[in-house]
């Protein structure tokens, strides 16, 4: 069983492995970055460390919702990258068994980034799980 953090993007419910989550912070003081890819919302300075904030909705092709007081930034744990993900609502954590299936409901995500569709896996209990390793590789390779 793995612990999953569940959150919402617009009306779409998604989750990722809690193991990668460093902290959840409020959506404040995001500075824009010139010439950044369209899915980069900006950067924040968090105790002297600079995190790049990803607009996951833009990346997945889910219609973006206006920022609300409920939106949060999930700061992720990674050796080489300092990444935060903007989500609309944090729901709960849940333990699920990770027998993953490829999500075949690709109509859910209209992302232009073809490979990004493969980053969403469907696991038991109908939860859509984001494959963060693939997500990090995508950011690293820079084919956007």
């Amino acid at each position: 069983m793995n612990k999953i953090l569940l959150f919402e993007l617009n009306t779409q419910s998604l989750g990722f492995d809690l193991h990668y989550v460093r902290e959840v912070i409020e959506n404040k003081n995001i500075q824009p970055v010139p010439l950044a890819p369209h899915f980069v919302l900006g950067i924040v300075n968090r105790r002297g460390k600079v995190f790049t904030i990803i607009n996951l909705a833009a990346l997945l092709g889910v219609p973006s919702k206006d920022l609300s007081p409920d939106s949060r930034i999930v700061i992720l744990e990674h050796k080489e990258m300092d990444i935060g993900i903007l989500v609309d609502i944090i729901n709960q954590t849940k333990s699920v068994s990770l027998t993953e299936k490829k999500a075949n409901e690709t109509h859910l995500f209209t992302s232009k980034e073809k490979e990004f569709r493969h980053m969403v896996l469907k696991c038991e209990e109908g939860i859509h799980l984001l494959d963060l390793e693939k997500f990090f590789t995508f950011l690293k390779e820079g084919k956007f």
Binding site: A36, N45, T52, M81, F144
Partner: peptide
């Protein structure tokens, strides 16, 4: 600059100013 920002060729690094503002 770390991914994905390292792909922006016009910048070669990032820095924090005294007031916490981020500069490229």
């Amino acid at each position: 600059l770390k991914p994905p920002l390292n792909h922006i060729k016009v910048f070669s690094g990032i820095t924090l100013l005294g007031d916490g503002k981020i500069t490229f």
